[in-house]
Design a protein around this nucleic acid. Structure first.
Length: 401
RNA sequence: GUGGCUGUAGCUCAAUUGGUUAGAGCACCGGUCUGUGGCACCGGGGGUUGCGGGUUCAAUUCCCGUCAGCCACCCCA
């Protein structure tokens, strides 16, 4: 007797599946509103697709094995390499900008914990071939509209936005040595999770000037105006200007609502392939992990051997989102109750019920009945328990009750 | 991979300082009640107390290991 799923994997009983379906239906609906079209790829990919982008150390976190043909394969841990490959393969034929979304089940061989399993479903929304920040704004607005579609407001969720290029320019303006920037990203990424003193020590070790330490530790609070004036005379000035556009575009796409965005240079998004604006959605209480994260990765397609298409996208998993929706009482799974429950008096043969069921089913109604001869009271009880919307009783003189 | 906490029926929990066939509610199944708002009553199935060892006359209760879960770290989706 097997009991339970493998660690980190979930059984979706009807209750859970209806919740998942609710989440996915909402994702799909909002993506449709933004004119993104759905695609999918293989759940199993060549291992190399991931090692080429992330290095061999990634293998320890993948579900990988050798198949019967001797191929090194891995269950997909993320969708970006797959979609990048798909787009790259037809880069010249696809109408630009490419606006695609997908809801793949992704796998990761890691110890599970709250909000993080070995398997999850993740909405992936990507745009290829759009270099302007309007595309970045479009993505953020889409993510926010998904929150709205679930009934979440800006009092519940905040979008923390940053820009890799601005962060780098800001760090340089503070006198951080170029070779230390990468290490400083690592420290910034952990600012929220470790004591300021520890962060400061690490910065000192990286060779960061003493007068810059405090500014970096409090980098999440830097205001746009301060950045703007500090970087006005540097080579990053155009990027800051673009960012200003971005900060204007997002509210415009949200009907003038400016309450969702918050500039936060501490948002680093891992240390990997992002090249421009990056963002993450968090619940305001800070109780959960990031709900959604994404950004621009203009060089990824090229690094995977494709063409030079600019690209950007975000991912939103079902696990943290589901936890948040349940906590807020906003989980509204679809109604799975049958339309009809047909019962019959003792002397009515089962065939009669079946014929009536067939008639209603042909009309598109969902119909349940006892599947065996039962007393009427028994049937009534079963019907009540099923929650069916309409209870029908057939009598032997042909009338319905 | 590392550390801390936890592990009794599908769910929520009980079981006096270790002591005799491990209990209850809910759920499920069967029956009674020919009219109720998923009512009531009666009855039933279901647990080798996560698993494996050890200590003991005796372990759900103590010890060790293992597996699983939760939390943190690592790392990130």
């Amino acid at each position: 007797m097997f009991k339970g799923a493998l660690p980190g994997f979930r059984d979706f009983y009807p209750q859970e599946l209806s919740e998942r379906a609710f989440i996915m239906a909402t994702w799909r609906e909002v993506a449709r509103r933004y004119a993104f079209v759905e695609y999918d790829g293989p759940p199993l990919e060549p291992l190399e697709l991931y090692t080429r982008k992330s290095g061999d150390e990634i293998v320890g976190q993948l579900y990988n094995f050798v198949d019967k043909g001797g191929r090194d394969v891995a269950m997909r841990p993320e969708m970006t390499p797959t979609v990048a490959r798909m787009v790259a393969a037809r880069a010249n034929a696809l109408r630009k900008p490419v606006r695609w979304f997908s809801m793949p089940q992704l796998f990761r061989y890691e110890r599970q914990q709250k909000g993080r399993l070995r398997e999850h479903f993740q909405l992936n929304v990507d745009i290829f071939g759009a270099a302007d920040v309007a595309a970045d704004a479009e993505l953020v607005a889409c993510a926010v509209d998904i929150m709205r579609a679930f009934g979440l407001g800006s009092q519940d969720v905040v979008v923390r936005v940053s820009d890799r290029r601005i962060l780098q320019a800001y760090l340089e303006s503070l006198g951080v040595p170029a070779e230390a920037v990468h290490g400083v990203y690592g420290v910034i990424d952990k600012l929220e999770r470790q004591p300021a003193a520890v962060s400061a020590e690490k910065l000192v070790a990286l060779g960061v000037p003493a007068d810059a330490i405090d500014r970096i530790v409090t980098i999440a609070d830097v205001a746009f105006d301060e950045l703007s004036s500090r970087l006005a005379t540097t080579s990053a000035a155009p990027v800051v200007q673009e960012f200003a556009d971005f900060l204007r575009f997002v509210p415009a796409l949200l009907g003038g609502d400016e309450s969702w965005l918050r500039l936060d240079l501490s948002i680093v998004r891992g240390l990997a392939y992002y090249t421009g604006i990056v963002f993450e959605l968090f619940d305001r209480s800070g109780e959960f992990r990031a709900i959604c994260g994404g950004g621009r990765y203009d060089t990824l397609l090229q690094s995977l051997g494709g063409s030079e298409l600019p690209a950007l996208g975000f991912g939103m998993g079902d696990v943290v989102l589901g936890e948040l929706l349940r906590a807020k009482g906003l989980m509204r799974p679809a109604d799975t109750r049958a339309d009809y429950w047909i019962s019959a008096a003792d002397d009515v043969p089962l065939d009669t019920i079946m014929r009536e069921a067939a008639r209603l089913r042909a009309e598109g109604q969902s119909v349940e009945y006892a599947l065996r001869a039962q007393s009427l009271s028994k049937q009534k009880k079963a019907a009540q328990a099923s929650g069916a919307k309409t209870f029908v009783t057939l009598t032997n003189d042909g009338t319905n009750g």
